[in-house]
Design a protein around this nucleic acid. Structure first.
Lengths: 191, 191, 191, 191
DNA sequence: GATGAATGAGGTTTCATTCAT
DNA sequence: TATGAATGAAACCTCATTCAT
């Protein structure tokens, strides 16, 4: 257990450092040395733990996706009506721990480079499919069949668009505010 | 004027090559040599014409933004009702010449790196503001005041989200289809 | 003595692993980690036992030279005529336990790097001198004085050349066959 | 023609520098920077011309093999009897321009690493086959059939062995002397 | 005795950029 | 106008080695 711990701790530390460093410098520009400095470690140790820069990036992405998945599952269970479950998905995406400029920035960077990496694009596809099926399940209970797909597109793309926008912001964003706006959009779409 | 011509021709050629090369290899990875090869020129000539790699990228972005602006103005003038003008903005974004996987991919890449470049982020801001004011102007005529901002967010973020999605696609996308879907979203949002 | 034993066992294991690993990967390319893995140990343990990579390499070479020396002494004692003793030296060099592709390969690698290491070149020189004196002693009894040196060169270089050739082989070599060929060469040279 | 020249000149310069540097520092240890310094160029320029370190090494080997081939063809044509042609092959191998400590050292290093490189081992095999067929052709005219192969092995391995020995020498070797010794060996073997 | 953890040193390679032609 | 030639800078990565446990 002690053995396992050190590896996990270092993993976590380096991933946190990666998020920070990528946000500050940009995905395509950030260097191992910068990330290492941010983590108070040596560049060599990153390779020791993750094998390569790409390995680190993939691990970081996976970490973020897990956070998102967890947040989604949590909120989903607590909601009772279809409309509330729809909002729960939105809440997860705009939760306090996830919806911040650095993280939105990171998502953008990852999405931008996903098409050039088998591994990253797979992760991206899986995540997208999960959100999609959640949306569809609830919307079917709320709208006539011929509007379901349009509404799903509207909501899912809205979420992506908001993140995309947040990534460009040079002032901090407010998760609570984003959640409220999202609920308004849900209501607007549901009519 | 003859002299001017050659410059313009080379500019255009190199920008086209940049779009292709960036789509194929990725913004953060593509090299001057690759772009030059794509254009059938030498890497040195790019510096001759654009001063630096960053200069080339900025010129390319500016070129795309102009295309978008032109398409928007065109469609806008031809529309007669607020709802049609709303759709016209959408049509511009999803027009045949703009809505393709390579170009959406390019937009994503640019957006991803915009926050790290004064020049690029300025371009990005200007474009976003233009679309925003168009949307607001029309929506004010169609919805009660307290729904206008929500609807604008829903529509504008939807557009971004659709591009973001298209950038990940590994099959060609259909502009006509995207336009139809966009109109459906407009109608859904207008209630 | 029990303590001594473990040291010796580990020494032997690591040297065997070195022979295998160097043959598979190449002397100049093989890493401590690869050797360690081959031995089922950690890279750190090699330093514990041999002090450094160079120490391990020297120990391995010494080990091989001892094997050769032993084989030579053995065969030498059992031979009765000058010609037989000449063949005995050859037999030692091409004995079953020594004349194999991996080991010839190893010799080549060592010889190649011997000039750059005081330690290795000393070992090489000693071994060469021993063979030389054996050859001279026997040839003096068999040939006129002015042919002795030429014959010695012919035989000794022949031996080296055969090893050199074996090191390049991609199929196993046959020691018995090599011994027979060597005897033929001896007879040819003796006239 | 002027264009082509510069490339060729740089090629030659860099290959000469490689021979010197590899001899001084060892094949597996020498660095691009050392070779570049020896040539009065930058390390980057080596990659510009040869693509990689491996490319440079292959080109260097090829250069040496060509030198050998040329020397052999030259001497071969001038000889009139089978015995003289035999000596001509020897003379080529021990010619003034080829038989030097640095070059013999280089050959050894190459042979040592040939088994680990498809390209190098191919070159090695081709060269060896050429020498072999030359030897066989002449020996058939001089010896009874059942001694031909033995004599060929004796002579060819002798040549390799002499080079191997020269590579270890820490004083310059004398090509004329080596040629004389080789002729003696030829006569000894021919009986 | 044995090994994960960690790193400094250093190597190859890539690349944007400059310059002479 | 156009480009081979050349390079400095810097990035990633590897690896032998050290050390605490």
């Amino acid at each position: 257990m002690g053995r396992k711990r050190i590896r996990d701790i270092r993993h976590e530390e380096l991933i946190e450092a990666t998020i920070t460093a990528v946000h500050q410098r940009g995905y395509g520009v950030v260097t191992m040395a910068e990330i290492a400095r941010e983590a108070g470690a040596s560049a060599a140790s990153i390779n020791y733990y993750f094998g390569s820069k790409e390995g680190l990036m993939e691990a970081t992405m996976r970490h973020l996706l897990n956070k998102l998945k967890t947040a989604m599952i949590e909120g989903y269970g607590a909601a009772n009506s279809p409309r509330d479950r729809l909002c729960a998905v939105m809440n997860a995406n705009f939760s306090d721990g996830l919806y911040s400029v650095p993280q939105c920035s990171l998502w953008m960077q990852f999405w931008g480079s996903a098409p050039y990496s088998k591994r990253l694009s797979r992760l991206h596809r899986i995540n997208r499919a999960r959100v999609r099926s959640h949306f569809l399940a609830e919307l079917r209970a709320l709208l006539p069949a011929d509007q379901v797909e349009t509404a799903r597109q509207a909501l899912q793309c809205y979420m992506d668009g908001v993140w995309l926008q947040a990534a460009q912001s040079d002032v901090p964003v407010d998760p609570a505010c984003a959640r409220r706006a999202a609920h308004d959009v849900v209501d607007l779409v549901l009519g």
